[in-house]
Amino acid sequence: MMAYMNPGPHYSVNALALSGPSVDLMHQAVPYPSAPRKQRRERTTFTRSQLEELEALFAKTQYPDVYAREEVALKINLPESRVQVWFKNRRAKCRQQRQQQKQQQQPPGGQAKARPAKRKAGTSPRPSTDVCPDPLGISDSYSPPLPGPSGSPTTAVATVSIWSPASESPLPEAQRAGLVASGPSLTSAPYAMTYAPASAFCSSPSAYGSPSSYFSGLDPYLSPMVPQLGGPALSPLSGPSVGPSLAQSPTSLSGQSYGAYSPVDSLEFKDPTGTWKFTYNPMDPLDYKDQSAWKFQIL
């Protein structure tokens, strides 16, 4: 009977010793046993002879290597770790002494450095960015050149030099007046198309007034536009458009034309069986010896 009264063996659950049927240790109110408190290391007290050895090595170098620390530790009968900690504390003490010396050398008012006064946003004049500046400075420094007289040679050079070769001289006033084509001369031969040399188009003023001019072949195509416009036809070669000034309004060009419109200028042929003959000019830059190549039959 006494065997049943004795408590059973101890069981360990999660490293906790349980005594038989008792489960009081598993209750929430019972805390787990805490780790033992780490003991504080005792402070090391250095003797005068030990301090002399350490100070002598510190005077040589503030960062001794492990071999120098072990050698000193053997002399003063201390572990190497204590020597390492002593050098660490000695360097910190040396830095603190240097900072105190710097503070003593500075004057009393030198510690508080005078800061520059901050400028207020409204006091300083700042350039306004509302208006974009002129990058080319046209509004201040540029002045347009004065327009020359209508009959000045410089204007003629600016007008005619675009179309004339570089080897030719500017046309005088008398020749510029001949550039304007007359109405009857352009409409006299509506079906004849003559190819003149390129030099005649640039230099010869008579080429624009003769039936064999460069633009005589364009007349049949330009004249039928007159009834559609409801007024006189516009002429690209009329009046002052080739003269001194090219800047004319469309209203000033509306009254200039080749001449009176005639039914002869239409595109319809009077004789459907007729042929169109292209007159060959020996001055043509295209060297075609066979003139029969310039004739064709309209079917």
Rank of each mutant, 00 (worst) to 15 (best):
S164I: 15
D290C: 15
R37N: 08
P153Q: 05
T45W: 15
Q50K: 13
Y280I: 14
P125M: 06
Q106V: 07
I138R: 06
G255T: 03
V180C: 03
P79G: 07
C94Y: 06
Q39Y: 15
T155K: 10
R40E: 13
Y258S: 06
G137W: 11
F296V: 07
Y258D: 02
I298P: 00
D290W: 13
P172A: 04
G243A: 04
K102V: 04
S34W: 11
T154H: 04
T129N: 09
S164D: 00
A73V: 15
T251A: 08
S182D: 01
R69E: 14
E80F: 09
V72E: 11
Y11T: 01
L253S: 02
P127F: 11
V131D: 06
M283N: 01
S19I: 15
R40P: 08
T155A: 03
R91S: 14
S150G: 07
R69N: 15
P190S: 08
G209Y: 13
A3L: 13
S161P: 00
L218E: 00
G274W: 09
L51E: 15
C202W: 13
D24V: 13
N77K: 10
P116M: 04
K38G: 11
M5I: 12
P220S: 07
L78W: 13
W294Q: 00
S213R: 11
C202H: 08
Q96N: 06
V83F: 15
S266K: 10
A198S: 07
S169G: 09
Y280Q: 00
Y67I: 05
D284A: 14
Q256I: 10
Q248G: 04
F87T: 14
A233C: 06
K102R: 07
S139T: 04
Q104Y: 07
P190Y: 15
I76W: 15
L74T: 08
G209T: 06
P244I: 12
P190L: 13
F201Y: 03
K289V: 04
R41N: 13
W294G: 02
A166K: 09
S241R: 12
Y195V: 07
L267E: 00
L237Y: 02
A68L: 05
S143A: 04
K120G: 03
L229G: 04
A121R: 10
V180Q: 05
N6S: 09
Q28S: 05
S167N: 06
F296P: 00
R82Q: 14
Y4T: 01
E52A: 04
L186C: 01
T129G: 05
P250M: 12
A260K: 09
F58W: 06
E42Q: 04
W163P: 00
L54H: 12
S210F: 11
L146T: 05
E42G: 06
A156S: 02
Y32V: 05
C94W: 03
L54N: 15
E55M: 05
A181D: 01
L237W: 12
R95S: 10
K88A: 15
L253A: 01
T159Q: 02
T123K: 04
P211R: 11
G255L: 12
T45K: 01
A233N: 12
D219I: 11
L237M: 01
V66H: 04
L246P: 04
G217R: 13
S143Y: 02
A156K: 03
L286K: 08
T159H: 05
W163G: 01
Y258Q: 04
Y288W: 14
A198K: 05
P250S: 08
E71R: 10
L229N: 01
G178S: 07
Q101L: 10
V23R: 10
R91D: 14
S199F: 11
G8L: 11
V13A: 01
G230M: 12
M225A: 02
G217H: 08
T61C: 08
A15D: 00
A59Y: 01
N77R: 06
P172N: 05
S188A: 08
P147G: 06
P36V: 03
S19R: 11
A260Y: 10
A29H: 06
V83L: 13
N281G: 11
F278P: 00
S254N: 06
E168C: 12
L136C: 04
Y191C: 02
G274L: 07
L51P: 14
P224W: 15
R41T: 13
S152L: 05
S210H: 10
P224A: 09
Q106W: 05
L57F: 10
F269P: 00
Y208K: 08
S212M: 11
P64H: 14
A121T: 06
T275I: 07
S245P: 02
I162K: 00
I138G: 08
T273S: 06
A207F: 13
P236Y: 15
A59F: 08
A207M: 11
D284N: 12
L267S: 00
I298K: 00
A166P: 01
P211M: 07
Y191E: 00
S254W: 14
P64C: 14
P108N: 05
F87S: 14
T155S: 01
P64D: 13
S262D: 04
M193Y: 05
L286M: 05
C132Q: 08
V72W: 13
L25V: 05
K277E: 01
F269V: 02
L179Q: 04
A15F: 11
L253Q: 03
A17S: 04
F296T: 00
V157R: 04
V264Q: 01
Q100G: 10
P116T: 05
Q106R: 09
E55V: 09
Y280C: 10
Y63L: 13
H10P: 06
V242I: 09
S141K: 05
S292E: 00
P145G: 03
K75M: 07
I76K: 15
V264K: 10
A59W: 01
F296S: 00
T45Y: 08
S203M: 10
L18R: 01
A198I: 11
S164M: 15
A35P: 05
S150D: 02
R126A: 07
P263K: 13
R90M: 13
D134H: 11
L237G: 03
T155I: 15
L16H: 02
G231F: 14
M283Q: 03
A192P: 01
Q106S: 02
F296H: 00
Y214V: 02
S212I: 12
S245W: 15
P165E: 01
P285R: 14
A35Y: 10
A158L: 15
Y288M: 08
G148Q: 04
I76A: 13
T61L: 10
E268L: 14
S139N: 04
A29T: 04
C94R: 13
L18T: 01
V226M: 06
M5K: 01
C94T: 09
S161K: 11
G20P: 05
P197D: 04
Y32W: 08
S292I: 14
D130N: 05
E80D: 11
D65R: 13
S34D: 04
A56P: 14
Y221T: 01
P220F: 15
L229F: 03
P108Y: 03
P282W: 13
Y4W: 11
S81P: 05
S292C: 12
V226Q: 00
G148C: 05
Q96E: 10
Q101P: 11
F201S: 01
S203Y: 11
M193L: 15
K75D: 14
T61R: 12
P108G: 06
R69A: 13
L136F: 05
P31R: 09
L186M: 01
G20E: 01
S161N: 01
L246E: 02
R115D: 01
N77Y: 06
A293H: 07
L186I: 03
K295S: 03
Q62M: 05
V83P: 14
A189G: 05
Q228I: 13
A174R: 12
P108R: 11
I162P: 00
